[in-house]
Design a protein around this nucleic acid. Structure first.
Lengths: 328, 328
DNA sequence: AAGCCGTGTGCACATACGTGCAACGGAGAC
DNA sequence: GTCTCCGTTGCACGTATGTGCACACGGCTT
């Protein structure tokens, strides 16, 4: 019943045209789906699906404007204390850590569109937070945008490429962007291998891209928290590595690069084998968006703030509150 | 259950804070109202109402992004032919004129926010279209914005001030703007009275404001259409006036100022007694938004386009289609 | 031609949502 | 104090919306 002639210029996928019209009628004119179904000569359920599609594909955008005078006391305080623009995601205190992560990731995915634009290079780290986000991204049309992987994803058991490529592909799809993968393990076994690899021209091209990022997007690792992050579960690190990290005083990592509570990284041995960008490189990105959830990552978050890695923070309410209460 | 301390700085009306949180949970995290009710310790119905409030008060903004490549063939065509940015409101062909007006006005009210900003002077005409719009405006916080009435509203029977002030007040409330009324009849009886009045300092202040408008907002009058517009019903004009208009070849008016099909106004006697701004003044506004619905206003619309009065047009689909088909 | 996806549809049912109504409670008026 | 008035609440009900399912259609293989 719909004429779809993808080849013809000017004409467009009838489905999208219908979605557009349905969205207008529903969101601008407040018609019921029944009424819209009647106007478009189809069933109500099709309209329901059409509207879902319109929302999921970014055709309909729902944004929330905090009446500028009350950007939540917490966000205000974080801005003043850390010079970081926070977006606090409301989550009930009794929520489980899994819930927390999901809800923060969902919100973050919907907020992300604000940071992404045409002609940008976007660095994306790899981990459970990014994976959760990738499932909820709202598409936004951009031109000439590039997604670049910040750190390797392979481990002893798998190359991680499938996983990582799936994740990157979702980001790329959402923004119509090219994707630059980084097919290396999360950590090299031998620092020398890494150095050698870094000299390869194909690697240098990617590192060069990283150094020119406009936006960096990452979660935080927290090696010694009760619920260790994704990176520590699947055979990425050995017991000896943990002990070394502990000795070196590491409290967290961003894209496999570890830091201490005061934000320093010098002398942390494992970093010699890490694949993520050095912080001095990371900090070149004018916008550095960090997504965190769960109090277990609090120390990690404090360290990342101390290291000046973050310009924009998306965090769950409980953690945000704990952050500012800790040394008020 | 809500602590509301309007005086204390930093703290804000608990209701709005709750609305904000509910909106986040509903629109960003896709929780059900039930779940939100539980989190906020209230009933589901209160959440329903809270969310309605959040939408109606502009806290939640829903916008529709046409994937820039298909701005509807009709809008494209209008842009090319008349150099006017059109927003076509979809309305089924069988809808009554009243329906049409309502639906266009509703859409227009929601679109209007795009044109309004801080530190602007906004001229608003008076008529059935503007009245319908005024009932659906979505608030948007602005500073130092001014609403100025473009034409008088009084007639033989009433001063029209109540009506007009109600309308202007709604616009003012929606944008937190000051309101400048224009307490004169729609048409003077004697051109001389008008000229005298125009010399008054209080009047000149208002005219001066009009001449510095950033945005003008108006509907179109269509004196000889089957369904005459508001202005022609309530004793604003006499039979003799209509005959004169007919002789002078008028096809429509903007804010009580009449024009011919070719856009000219010279020699239309009634304009000597009109209270709306001369077109040369009107055209000084960089943005001139016209809201039209119904094919009855087609001639009127063509004239206004010919006169170059419009930069942005919000129009129902049928009328838009008729416009471009007429001389394709 | 027959068979076999994959996509998209309408139906029917379960949920989720909006709203009239009666009851409650706090802020003046007296 | 006590009364009234106005705004807000939760309940109950009817309506609107989301989704599993079975089925129909077109394209592609065998």
């Amino acid at each position: 019943m719909i004429e779809n002639e993808p080849g013809e210029p000017g004409t467009v996928s009838g489905r999208m045209r219908d979605a557009l019209r349905a969205a207008h009628l529903y969101y601008m004119q407040d018609l019921t789906m029944d009424a819209i179904a009647h106007e478009l000569h189809t069933s109500r359920s099709s309209i329901s699906r059409l509207l879902s599609h319109a929302r999921a594909s970014g055709l309909v955008e729902i944004s929330i404007h905090s009446p500028l005078d009350l950007p939540s006391r917490i966000e205000q305080e974080i801005l003043e204390r850390h010079e970081v623009h926070a977006q606090v995601v409301p989550v009930p205190d009794h929520a489980s850590d899994v819930d927390r992560l999901d809800r923060v990731a969902l919100s973050a995915a919907r907020i992300l569109g604000q940071y992404v634009d045409s002609n940008q290079t976007i660095g994306v780290a790899w981990g459970s937070t990014m994976t959760a986000m990738s499932r909820h991204l709202v598409p936004k049309a951009t031109h000439n945008t590039e997604i670049v992987q910040l750190n390797g994803a392979g481990n002893v058991r798998t190359t991680g490429i499938l996983y990582a490529s799936e994740l990157l592909r979702r980001f790329g799809d959402a923004f119509g962007a090219r994707v630059q993968q980084f097919p290396v393990p999360a950590f090299f076994d031998d620092p020398e291998t890494r150095r050698a690899f870094w000299r390869e021209r194909s690697t240098r091209r990617l590192l060069d891209l990283q150094s020119r990022m406009d936006v960096a997007l990452f979660g935080l690792g927290s090696p010694f928290a009760e619920v260790p992050s994704h990176v520590y579960q699947g055979g990425y690190l050995e017991r000896a590595d943990y002990e070394a990290l502990s000795r070196d005083g590491a409290v967290g990592d961003v894209a496999t690069v570890f830091y201490r509570a005061d934000g320093t990284t010098d002398g942390i041995a494992l970093n010699e084998r890490a694949t993520g960008p050095d912080f001095s490189v990371l900090r070149r990105a004018p916008r550095r968006v960090c997504v965190v959830s769960g109090k277990a990552k609090l120390d990690s978050l404090r360290g990342a703030l101390a290291a000046g890695l973050i310009t924009d923070l998306i965090v769950d309410e409980g953690t945000a509150r704990a952050l500012i209460e800790s040394r008020a």
